[in-house]
Design a protein around this nucleic acid. Structure first.
Length: 833
RNA sequence: GCGGAAGUGGUGAAAUGGCAAACACACCAGCCUUAGGAGCUGGCGCCGCGAGGCUUGCGGGUUCAAGUCCCGCCUUCCGCACCA
């Protein structure tokens, strides 16, 4: 009975055994810088937020990364494959409110639960390098970096309009506002508030962040495009218009200074500084401006700033065009943004759609100053938006091309001291202050005498007080902890107050992957030599939702660390892979839709191997994957077939170990050929194509073929060494995708050492080659028949074989063969008339 | 509006310009019985009894040959969007 039971594949019987063995052997997945010439490979999956439960997106992400890591181990690389926890963040505070559990306890118990899930899935991480961002051992280095950035002017404080989410009760970065709503609360409109906040000067690296994208050819084009748009570089000119009867000037930013003779008004953002001055003198205007501000705010909050109905009010002021002294009216308009460019524009209705719409609505003069480059062209319809033209109505500049005029006008402005060429970026500095408890305390002190005083390095870390009352009240919960707030000023020794804002959690994830290289370092964020060995990351894998937030912050942080002399690489990762979403019934899995599939459930029913393998099999990794449980069951049945096949022949095959596998007879040759074809296919895919769905399919084909030859195997028609070769390599091919069953069957085959240390199989092209191949024969492009020829058959042989075929002859009868195309090994096409 | 990706059976999907639908799921028919979430055999794009014809969102084009390349359009998804 017991013997027969063993014939059945039972993941619940084998998986726990290997989980225990692997947990007891930390050296298995361990990585150390290696001086013996083994090439290094750093494969990284984005670290999860410890919500307490892995979801299928995680399973998919980690199944891809783990398959790659295992493959690279077997290829003989020194592999770093780490995992950690993005452990700060608001959910821990919400859980504290709800369950009265301290955030730290809640987070750490979630981490323990998710780690167990990962071990159940058999993911091969080096837990010795585990990073947990909410522990002082980690976040003290956030504080250390903050101080280094403060010293260099890269961290600074300013009062500004900030994005405020009432549900988070904190400020959000621009990157965390999506269509005017909070990135965590889709139904929450983000409010604008004036607050003093800490910022990181990411704009200092705007140009380098942009230029670097061109070199990141291992990143998806989509991500690069998104980052380019986000950085939003724009080349143009700033020009001062003086204001009649006033000392202030209006500086405008334009990308089309060549059209400046067509500027018939100047438009100010409602919150432009000059507007306040003008409104003071004009009560009616003041009310109208408030109206414009309200409209702009409303549009921003609904996320539809593009759809705002253009509305403006005239002022009594006139601006003077510095090039020709022309007086143009100054307007205030609701579509001009105070925080882009200079918050003021020159309006050229003839050559700009928005300006045209506005001028038409309010009856402002429209003057054409650009003619089509082709003199024979028809009179253009206004607005004529083209940079390919010739200046007219532009005084001394008439006849110049747009491009030449821009250059000339910039020179004149610079010489005249009223303007200059200017590059503007859309990206803004990164607001990092959060009025929350569960984050890294900002290491600064406010002293009445000394002002802002950094916490000295030797007083780091500034530790979060463990006992704290979490409430939904405004302001940081830390501000209500006197022991935390009241400090001695490090400079004057007097009483002072600690900064109570904490850092955005995206700070934590901006450099965590460096910490993996030296996770226990207590005297530095990491050792530069260790990071130098492992970096850059060879393959980073995660969701496309981080294309802007995490991935742009990480690139920024890398450049800052490079400038601090800690590392030498300019970019964190050479290759980035963004996997598709896991969906169910056509929709993203979510609690509200009730279509969530639990990984634990899948593992309990079908085993970790089937769950992981299905995640790779159901779709190519970059596409969305529709989770169908029947498919998991199918993969599980497949593994059952593998199990029966290998266990049936494992004992007999072992005698063939070490002997040369020479295939005699058609069945053996065909099986060996299929094996070597499969090895070649899968190896090639790991090298870049990454169609793991077809890799799994290829293994299925191999197994189907072996199963189909069961009678021959049973009859001993396949020699023992060939049988051994077949089983051994089948198991090796399976190992990256289904590590548990592979380990078990490896042992079954009499192997004592870890399969992870076994060399990846190498395909022998001579054995993979077909002897005879089928060549389709077409007549006028239509398939007529298929002929069998030798794989080496030359063009002539193939042609004569095809022409002598009965079906071909009957098709061609009575017609002239105009042409015969023969593609060796591919096809024959007869063109007949 | 701008930019990107995609559109192939009932479903997930496969196909260096060279036999469209590999591999699975579901379904159908049969076999087996230790009755299992098992196993085995066969069938399964559409029309047609059949011979055969048709088929990769739509319309053109290039080519001996197009799911694949080019042009135009439609649809879906994603990102950006008065950014001056």
């Amino acid at each position: 009975m017991a013997e027969e039971k063993e014939l059945r594949y039972d993941p619940a019987a084998i998986e726990p055994k290997w989980q225990e063995r692997w947990a007891a052997d930390p050296a298995l997945y361990a990585a150390e810088p290696d001086a013996h010439g083994k090439p290094k490979y750093y494969v990284l999956e984005m670290l999860p937020y410890p919500s307490g439960q892995l979801h299928m997106g995680h399973v998919r992400n980690y199944s891809i990364g783990d398959a790659l890591a295992r493959h690279m181990w077997m290829r003989g690389y020194n592999v770093l494959h780490p995992m950690g926890w993005d452990a700060f963040g608001l959910p821990a505070e919400n859980a504290a409110l709800k369950n009265n559990t301290p955030p730290r306890e809640w987070t750490l118990s979630n981490i323990a639960a998710m780690k167990r899930q990962m071990q159940r899935l058999g993911l091969g991480y080096d837990w010795a390098t585990e990073v947990t961002t909410c522990l002082p051992e980690y976040y003290r280095w956030n504080q250390w970096f903050f101080l280094r950035m403060y010293e260099r002017g890269l961290a600074y404080r300013k009062k500004s309009k900030v994005n405020w989410c009432p549900q988070c009760a904190t400020v959000l970065a621009n990157e965390q506002v999506i269509d005017g709503r909070c990135w965590r609360h889709e139904d929450q409109i983000v409010e604008q508030r004036d607050l003093v906040q800490w910022f990181f000067r990411i704009t200092a690296y705007a140009q380098e962040l942009l230029d670097g994208l061109d070199k990141l050819d291992g990143w998806p084009e989509k991500v690069r495009t998104m980052q380019r748009n986000w950085i939003g570089r724009s080349e143009g000119t700033e020009v001062d218009f003086s204001v009649e009867g006033r000392s202030e000037k209006i500086r405008v930013f334009t990308t089309r200074v060549d059209t400046i003779f067509g500027a018939t008004s100047v438009q100010l953002a409602p919150e432009h500084p000059l507007v306040a001055a003008l409104a003071v003198e004009d009560a009616a205007l003041c009310a109208q401006v408030d109206q414009l501000i309200a409209e702009q705010k409303a549009a921003r909050e609904t996320g539809d700033i593009g759809g705002i109905e253009k509305h403006g009010v005239p002022t009594r002021a006139f601006a003077i065009n510095p090039y020709n002294g022309e007086k143009v009216p100054v307007w205030i308009a609701n579509y001009i943004l105070a925080d882009y460019g200079t918050g003021a524009i020159m309006s050229v209705p003839a050559h700009d759609e928005r300006d045209f719409e506005f001028a038409t609505k309010y009856g402002i003069l429209i003057r054409r100053v650009i003619a089509p480059a082709d003199p024979a062209a028809e009179e253009p319809v206004l607005p004529f938006v083209s940079e390919d033209g010739i200046l007219i109505n532009s005084g001394a500049y008439n006849g110049l091309t747009c491009e030449a005029a821009q250059k000339k006008l910039q020179e004149v402005a610079a010489a005249g001291g009223f303007g200059e060429a200017k590059v503007t970026f859309r990206i803004k500095d990164w607001g990092v202050s959060r009025q929350r408890y569960w984050g890294t305390p900002i290491p600064m002190i406010h002293c009445e005498r000394d002002g802002l005083v950094p916490v000295p390095d030797d007083q780091l870390p500034v530790v979060l007080p463990p006992q704290i009352e979490i409430t939904q009240q405004g302001g940081s919960p830390l501000s209500r902890v006197p022991d935390f707030v009241n400090v001695i000023c490090p400079r004057c020794g007097g009483a002072a107050l600690r900064e109570t804002d904490t850092m955005d959690t995206f700070v934590d994830s901006s450099w965590y992957f460096y910490r993996y290289t030296d996770a226990k370092n207590a005297s530095a964020p990491f050792d530069s030599r260790r990071a130098g060995y492992w970096f850059p990351i060879d393959q980073y894998i995660g969701g496309v939702e981080h294309a802007i937030l995490h991935l742009i912050y990480s690139r920024f942080w890398t450049k800052v660390m490079r400038d601090l002399g800690l590392i030498v690489n300019d970019e964190p990762a050479t290759r980035l892979f963004t996997q598709g979403m896991v969906i169910k019934d056509g929709a993203k899995m979510s609690k509200s839709k009730g279509n969530v599939v639990s990984p634990d459930d899948m593992v309990a029913r079908y085993g970790a191997d089937a769950t992981r393998m299905y995640a790779l099999f159901a779709a190519p990794p970059d596409r969305d994957l529709d989770w169908q449980e029947d498919g998991v069951a199918g993969v599980s049945r497949f593994l059952g077939r593998v199990w029966r096949l290998v266990t049936k022949y494992a004992a007999a095959a072992q005698a063939g170990r070490g002997a040369e596998a020479v295939a005699q007879g058609a069945a053996a040759q065909q099986l060996q050929r299929k094996l070597h074809q499969t090895i070649a296919k899968i190896t090639l895919d790991f090298e870049g194509r990454w169609h793991f769905n077809t890799c799994v399919a290829a293994i299925m084909e191999l197994v189907n073929e072996m199963q189909g030859a069961d009678a021959q195997l049973a009859a001993g028609e396949v020699s023992v060494p060939v049988l051994y070769e077949l089983l051994r390599n089948l198991i090796l091919l399976l190992a990256p995708f289904a590590p548990f069953i592979a380990a078990e069957l490896w042992e079954e085959l009499g192997e004592k050492s870890a399969i992870l240390r076994a060399p990846w199989p190498v395909s022998n092209p001579a054995l993979a080659k077909e002897d005879e191949i089928e060549i389709p024969v077409q007549v006028n492009g239509k398939l007529v028949t298929v002929v069998r020829v030798s794989a080496e058959a030359d063009t002539k042989t193939i042609e004569s074989t095809a022409l002598s075929d009965e079906k071909v002859q009957s098709r061609a009868a009575g017609k002239t063969v105009a042409k015969v195309i023969v593609v060796p090994r591919k096809l024959v096409n007869l063109v007949v008339k």
